[in-house]
Amino acid sequence: MMKKFIIQVNGPAYGSTSSYKALQYCQAVIAAGHQIEKVFFYQDGVTNSSSLNCPASDEVNLYQLWLRLANEHNVPLINCVSAALRRGVLSQQDAYESNKAHWNVDAPFVMGGLGELVTGIEQADRFVSF
């Protein structure tokens, strides 16, 4: 029977393997016929959403893999905006509001509040944290 999953990513884009495991887990959930309601990036997890991450061309590009997951399977990718702003991870709107010349978060990543994590947990059958 199909289950609805919410995935929380707390680890950085680089420096630990937890985010890559989260991505692989999402792929496995979808392959098994389940649904990912959303991936919520919290703590250092928000660094996954930075379009300025530039790994060498022969290394895993986690940012691109998240994009592919979102585009191919229609998975919402949501940043906790407070956690992101503290770490220099900004959308165009955030940059405008904070009077910054640059930003590094674009669609399909979107900014959201912690409330979206709570309501997501409430609605999902399974909550898995990385």
């Binding site: 707390n10 919290y42 703590q43 407070s82 956690a83 509040g113 912690l114 409330g115 994590l117 709570v118 309501t119 947990i121 409430e122």
Partner: peptide, 19 residues
Amino acid sequence: ATSSREGIDFALLSASFEQ
């Protein structure tokens, strides 16, 4: 580390969403 601070933020938010 900052994990506790962000954990508290989550806890308070959850409480205000009546979990």
